[in-house]
Simulated assay, not measured.
Amino acid sequence: MTVPADIAASKQISLTTYRKDGTPVATPVWHVADGDTITTVSSADAWKVKRLRRNAQVEIVRCDVRGKIDPDARPVRGTATLLPPSETEAARRLLESRYVSARIGGTLTRLLHIKRPAGIGIVITLQPES
Results as ranks from 00 to 15, higher is better:
111 L>C: 09
39 T>W: 00
105 G>N: 10
72 D>G: 11
103 R>W: 08
42 S>T: 14
69 I>W: 01
44 A>F: 04
50 K>R: 15
89 E>T: 15
83 L>G: 06
41 V>I: 02
30 W>S: 10
13 I>K: 00
126 L>Q: 04
102 A>Y: 15
4 P>S: 12
93 R>C: 11
10 S>D: 11
36 D>F: 01
45 D>F: 06
11 K>H: 13
84 P>Y: 04
18 Y>E: 08
15 L>C: 09
80 A>S: 05
52 L>G: 02
3 V>W: 00
65 V>W: 11
98 R>W: 05
4 P>H: 10
59 E>F: 05
101 S>V: 10
75 P>K: 00
48 K>D: 03
116 R>W: 13
86 S>C: 02
1 M>R: 10
62 R>A: 13
109 T>W: 08
57 Q>R: 14
24 P>R: 01
102 A>M: 14
33 A>R: 00
80 A>H: 01
52 L>K: 01
39 T>P: 02
88 T>M: 02
54 R>N: 12
119 G>F: 04
25 V>R: 15
50 K>M: 07
81 T>W: 00
67 G>H: 01
100 V>R: 13
114 I>D: 05
60 I>M: 08
8 A>Y: 03
6 D>T: 12
23 T>A: 13
73 A>T: 01
108 L>T: 08
83 L>K: 04
123 V>S: 07
76 V>A: 10
129 E>K: 14
88 T>R: 00
111 L>Y: 09
7 I>E: 07
39 T>V: 15
124 I>N: 01
80 A>C: 05
33 A>Q: 00
11 K>M: 12
20 K>T: 09
18 Y>M: 13
83 L>S: 10
62 R>N: 12
29 V>Q: 06
24 P>K: 02
45 D>W: 09
30 W>P: 04
51 R>N: 14
58 V>P: 01
63 C>E: 01
24 P>M: 03
70 D>E: 14
86 S>K: 07
16 T>L: 07
16 T>K: 08
45 D>R: 10
119 G>Q: 15
129 E>F: 10
104 I>G: 11
32 V>S: 06
104 I>F: 13
64 D>R: 02
9 A>E: 15
